[in-house]
Structures are given as C-alpha cells and as structure tokens.
Write a protein that binds this DNA or RNA. Structure first.
Lengths: 160, 160
DNA sequence: TCCATTTTGCTAGCTTTACTAGCGAACTGA
DNA sequence: TCAGTTCGCTAGTAAAGCTAGCAAAATGGA
C-alpha cells in the first residue's frame, strides 16, 4: 500500500510532466509560427493567403469541400475580404472556383496542381525532418503521441 | 529469428504509425490556427499583432529579451512595419518600449500586466482543455510526448 | 585612435489588404 | 407561396505592410 508521501511524490511527478508537455506544445507552436513565416517569405505570399492555402490542403486531405464561407470562418475575416483573397489565389494560379454541385449560389474552392507542387516544394525539408524524428519512435509510442495530438486538437477546437 | 515476412509487417506498421502521427500533427496545427483566429476575433486584434504577442509571451517564459528587430525576424515583416506594430501594441497598453541596457540605439519590448491578463483570460478554456487531456497520460508517456514535440520543434526550425 | 561601415529604430509616402454596407440571386421553411 | 435567410460579390473607406532613406550609436580594421 502506498504511503501518503509516495502519493505526493507521484502527484508532483505528474504535475512536472504535465507542465513540461504543455511547455513543449507552446514551443512547438512557436516553431510552427516561424516555419510558416519563413514559407510566407520564400513563397512571396502574405500570411493570410498562406493560411488559407494550408487550410485548403488539410481539408483536401480529409476529403472535405471548402467554400468561400468556410475560409472566412476559419480565418475570421469578412466574406468581402475572402472574395478578394480568393481572387488573389485564383490570379496566382493556386486555386480555382468551381460551381457547387447542389447550391447554385455557392462555390467550391479547389487547389490546383501548381499549389500542391509549390507547397510540397517549400515544405519538403520540414516534412522530411518531421518524418525523421517520427521514425525514431516505436509504433506503440507513435500511437500514444498521435492519440495525444488528436485529443488536444479536439480539446482546443471542439467545433471541428 | 524474424522471417522476412515478419520484418515486412513491422515495417508496414511503422510506416502506418508514422503517417498517422504526421496527420495528427497537421490536424493539431490546423486546430491551433483556428484557435488563434478565434482569439483574434475575441480580443479584437489583427493576426500579426496577436502573433507578436504570442512570441513575446513565449520569449518571456524563456527569459529571453525581445527587440523590435527580433519581432521583425520572427514575423518576417519589415522593420518599418514593426515600428507601427509596436506603436499599436503600445497604444493599446499591451507592451512598453524600454531602453536596452547596453546598446543605446536599441529597445527592449516588454509585456504589460494587462497583456498577460488579457491573454490568460482568452486562453484559459483552451489551456484547461489541454491540461485535462495531458492529465490522462502517465508521466512516462508525457515524457515521450514532450520529447517528441521538442525534437519536432528543432527539426522544423533549426535556427531556434 | 580614427574613421568608414554596419546596425538599430524611426518617418514619409505609396501599395496592398481588410472592413462595413449593401446588392441580386438562390435556398429554406412555415 | 412567399417572407426570411444565406451566399458570394462590388464599392468605397480604414488599416496595415512595403520601400527608401535618415540620424544616432556601435563596430572593426588601419
């Protein structure tokens, strides 16, 4: 049977471990911020347009359609700004507007191959580095990490 | 001794696990994006100013000083834009310019209590949710996760 | 020590991006 | 059916980013 002192020790260990993981999350978020700033510079794009592109890529990988309204909601900008944003991305050849299959008012914004190529090109080193890190962990560990990240995502963004 | 078939199986497991963790990283990054967009709306701030505030908070927690130049580098904006950004944050009472202790040209940007309070206030729910998730893991698991995130941070941003 | 070079943060003036207001067309539901 | 809502867009204004260039301070080689 554990003594009160033992359980105090365990609780302190746990608190320390939780604190460290939350610090690591902050640091990771900071590193992502800097990576995206770097891409913005390299790809000669403004921060918002790049954020929209990221969103489109993730939604595409999930097989979800994206409307101008979705972009506005994700970035928390007005629909008017979104129209101009889509104009810019369309002019630069990164996206195309397609008619919505059912709702004739609405549009679907989809990526062009140019977009995917550009993004992959500028993302390659970071993706490679991340993959290398991941390969140093066992499948069991990776499952724990993925589970953690998935639950964190739900926690900070329940509407997703 | 493992047969070739066994090792193939293991390799497939590993690939799958790596793929899943990289997906989880993407999803997490997407959730963070949306969380920050939400804060931007709630705090009635533009995305860049909020990103600067995030940077200042993280640097402060690390005990690192921040100059206007550091902000410009982090966000990849010009020093001229940074001057205006700091003007805005100073006018809104979020930061103060202090003289650099050694270099009389330079400034140090530091957070005000208002900033910390505002940020904590708007961040509280998310922080709480993240802490709750973290508490479901053992100290050993948390150590693996923290280690992973720290190494990912270095991987995607070697200049840090 | 001196002086040319670099760095730092700032201002001025212009360009780009986001906002509010409001529109027509299309969808929804009582 | 038809009043109310939603969707994406335009027009015009406000905000934020950029380039160019400056003075003051730091730096480093002769």
């Amino acid at each position: 049977m554990a003594s009160p002192a033992d359980s105090d020790d365990k609780s302190r260990d746990k608190d320390r471990a939780v604190w460290r993981v939350l610090s690591a999350v902050r640091a990771f978020s900071d590193a992502m911020d800097r990576m995206y700033s770097g891409m913005k510079g390299d790809m000669d794009m403004n921060a918002t347009d790049l954020a929209a592109l990221r969103m489109l890529i993730i939604r595409e990988q999930r097989g979800q359609d994206v409307s101008p309204h979705d972009i506005a909601r994700h970035l928390r900008i007005s629909t008017a700004s979104t129209t101009k944003l889509v104009d810019r991305l369309a002019d630069s050849g990164h996206v195309v507007r397609k008619p919505h299959p059912v709702d004739r008012r609405a549009r679907l914004i989809s990526l062009t191959d140019k977009s995917r190529t550009d993004f992959t090109h500028h993302f390659r080193d970071s993706i490679g580095a991340m993959r290398d890190v991941a390969f140093d962990y066992s499948p069991t560990e990776l499952a724990v990490i993925a589970d953690f990240l998935e639950r964190m995502s739900v926690g900070i963004d329940p509407d997703d």
